[in-house]
Design a protein around this nucleic acid. Structure first.
Lengths: 206, 206
DNA sequence: TAATTTTTTTAACGGTGTTAGATTATTTAC
DNA sequence: GTAAATAATCTAACACCGTTAAAAAAATTA
């Protein structure tokens, strides 16, 4: 009987609807605001029905994470295909990675464990700026010879911070990388940026 | 009456105990596992008592975040004080930042919105590796002339990823930085690393 | 039409953050 | 020292959460 297949299709539809509803809620509200009951409301069912399609909430998140990786892969491939030279390809791919992160901000958060709700209270609490200021000051001194603008210092500060924070978060979230490798990457990057500031040398990772 | 002050001290003690208990739970379990009732259990009170000392759970997290920033500031200052040359100071400070992140992993997570629970299911789901493989392959091609080991490629991959992911997360979590500045930092960094790989040029952020 | 199977819902469990009101303990005033 | 006032603490509840078991409704098969 062909109705079996029709029913199968309907089930797949509902499954897709659940994912769609979940994603819709997250985009309108946030990941923390996502609940099984809200999803159920959105698809006009009651909550337990979702468990006919997904083992639990985690499984829904995993499916959406998967979706993120698939989109990102496609974006990277497309970026690569636009160029022939490997250097140009790589540049385009990282820019595509960047674009993906903001075009699909919610998916990116899910994929790489980036929270949003943290420390939005900088005005109530000036100590937050202290670490930044300490680093900022030293960078300023280091650059003193080159008469830098505030923007110049800012860029250096963020470059440093990005490298270090990026490496840190990758290590906290995905604890696969070896410590030795990390330390080497970290030291190389720091040395390179410092040298680029002082103007003596260059970013040669050996 | 001096008992007023004694009572004041006792209240401050309890406040500190709450923070301590919260932190203890987080270190033993995780941020998600932290609940008002668990804190209350730990300090041997009932949950509503906590609201005499903190407006809500968020306020407790804020206080711990504050603690994180204070420790980090002290670490950075100490690192700076160990050197005279600005370049050495800066290097020491970023290494101290790194050390802080892992010595106080929980605080770092709180301060910079780094989740842990995400995507621990790489084996169930190979698509996760796709983006990494795509980038990896191009880096490999780009480095082909220099007979790189797997480790060499790995280091380049992580260097790229750290810079981009770091910049992305900073922008998602703290949305203060201007788009123009970001794009410039991003492009500079990518170009610099690519040039360092091809060996033609150097990391000169101008 | 009757029996069977599938789909969906209701009700509940134990958990969460949070609040109002009752209760207990402590301090003040006489 | 007892009574009144104040402070500290708890109980009970609310509305929410993820999840499950069992009942009810709907659809399919015989």
């Amino acid at each position: 009987m062909a109705s079996k297949e029709r029913i199968q299709r309907l089930k797949e539809d509902t499954r897709a609807n659940i994912l769609e509803a979940a994603f819709k809620i997250v985009k309108k509200e946030s990941w923390q605001a996502l609940s099984m009951r809200k999803i159920a409301d959105e698809i006009e069912y009651t909550a337990p029905i979702i468990y006919e399609y997904f083992a639990n909430k985690e499984a829904i998140l995993q499916e959406l994470t998967k979706k993120g990786y698939i989109i990102l892969s496609a974006d990277l491939q497309a970026a690569k295909d636009k160029h022939n030279l490997p250097a140009k390809q790589l540049e385009a791919m990282w820019l595509a990675y960047w674009d993906f992160a903001f075009a699909e901000k919610e998916l990116y958060q899910l994929m790489y464990g980036v929270q949003v709700n943290c420390c939005v209270f900088e005005k109530d609490f000036p100590e937050i700026q202290n670490p930044a200021n300490l680093l900022w000051d030293v960078i300023k001194v280091l650059m003193a010879g080159t008469n830098p603008t505030e923007d110049d210092i800012c860029r250096r500060y963020y470059t440093f911070w990005s490298v270090v924070h990026g490496l840190v978060s990758i290590n906290i979230v995905k604890k696969g990388v070896s410590d030795k490798l990390n330390q080497q990457i970290l030291r190389d990057a720091i040395t390179a940026i410092i040298k680029s500031i002082t103007g003596y040398f260059f970013f040669v990772i050996t």
